[in-house]
Amino acid sequence: MKTTNPVLARLGQAAERERAAGYAQPGPYGQPGYPAAPGYPQQHTPYQQQYPAGAGYPAAPPTVTPMTLDDVVVKTVTLLAILGASAAAAWVLVPDAMVGVAWIGAAVVGLALGLIISFSRMANPALVVAYAVIEGVFVGMVSKAFNSLYDGIVLQAVAATFGVFFLMAMVYKARIIRATPKFTKILVSVMVGLFAAMLINFVLALFGVNTGLRDGSPIAIIFSLVCIVVASLSFVLNFAEIEEGVRMGLPQRYSWTAAFGILVGLVWLYIEILRLLSYFQGDD
């Protein structure tokens, strides 16, 4: 089955290369192949073709275990737990005077790791876990800074973030919004534009230039609302990738890549909700 999703196409090609290197050929929906019924030809893997029965070949390599929805759920919960522990540790251990430095440092390192994971052709659980740790420091520092100004805002942002996430999960399950090729193309283009705008704003802010995107002005409120909507819709792409990845029979470790995508969306959504809430806080 062909897919119009470039990420899934790339991961599917990587999975096929793994199987061609000697793993058992999967059956329907990623299940291992079984012996053919009587009267039908037996399908052999490249490994079996290279070493026919009785030729004294070494033990066959293990079958590739396909990922399941449960795998993605477990990996996502694991990454969230790691991020939460890292955020809590950073909140407690990093002195107030170092919050800004840790905030910027974690943002830069997290961006670099995120790009490496996104463009990598192989799933790398170690990098994904490292990303969760770094993002935990980033989230912890941002949360500590905002909570020092507006008490209780962090809990409000966390509740709103997971509320939006579960709402989008229900919307996707009901097929109210579908990840069609056109929808995917438009959303990805908008996301790239928003990330470019945020990156430019971040760099200019380091030099004291105010673009109006993060100062609480009407423009800043509109920008955060747009980011919240786009971040919410990005979960539709995540859910579609997971669903199609399971159907394609991607190897189990690619569930880390799927969980990484959800984690990125949750962090982005949380930060934007946190900012938006801060714009409506009173001065007292």
Rank of each mutant, 00 (worst) to 15 (best):
V267E: 11
A21G: 13
F223L: 08
G265A: 06
T63R: 14
G265L: 01
L149R: 15
A106Y: 02
G245L: 03
L276R: 10
R121G: 15
I228C: 04
A258W: 04
R214M: 12
A197V: 11
W91I: 01
I116F: 12
K2C: 07
P52T: 08
N147E: 13
L80C: 08
I222Y: 14
A197C: 09
K2R: 14
L93M: 03
R19K: 15
S234I: 00
Y40C: 13
F280M: 00
A21I: 06
V236P: 02
S143H: 07
L111I: 07
V94Y: 00
A160L: 14
Y29K: 13
M98E: 10
A106D: 00
I186L: 11
I221F: 09
K173F: 09
M67H: 10
R275C: 01
L11I: 12
P251V: 07
V246T: 04
V190T: 02
L213F: 13
F119P: 08
V230M: 06
K185S: 15
G22W: 06
G54D: 04
V133I: 07
V142L: 13
A123C: 13
L80N: 11
F195Q: 10
P28G: 08
A132N: 07
A197E: 06
S232F: 03
V192K: 06
T76Y: 03
A14K: 12
G282R: 09
P28I: 08
V236G: 03
P38E: 03
E18D: 11
Q50W: 11
N124A: 14
Y29N: 15
K75D: 08
T65C: 10
G136M: 00
V158G: 02
T65M: 12
L237A: 00
F183R: 01
M67Q: 01
F165S: 03
A81S: 03
L199V: 13
I117Q: 07
C227M: 08
A88D: 12
M170K: 10
N201R: 09
G12F: 01
S189R: 00
R253F: 14
R175C: 01
W91R: 11
P95R: 03
R275K: 12
V73M: 09
A205Y: 10
N124V: 11
G245V: 01
W256K: 10
S86Q: 02
A205E: 13
N238R: 07
F166L: 05
G56C: 12
G152D: 04
L167E: 01
G249D: 05
V267I: 06
A97N: 12
A102W: 12
M248S: 02
I104M: 13
A97Q: 15
L206C: 14
G193L: 07
S278K: 07
A37T: 15
Q156I: 00
L167R: 02
A88T: 10
V164Q: 03
F239G: 01
I228E: 05
Y279C: 06
T211E: 09
V203E: 06
P38L: 06
V7Q: 10
E241A: 11
A97T: 14
A21H: 10
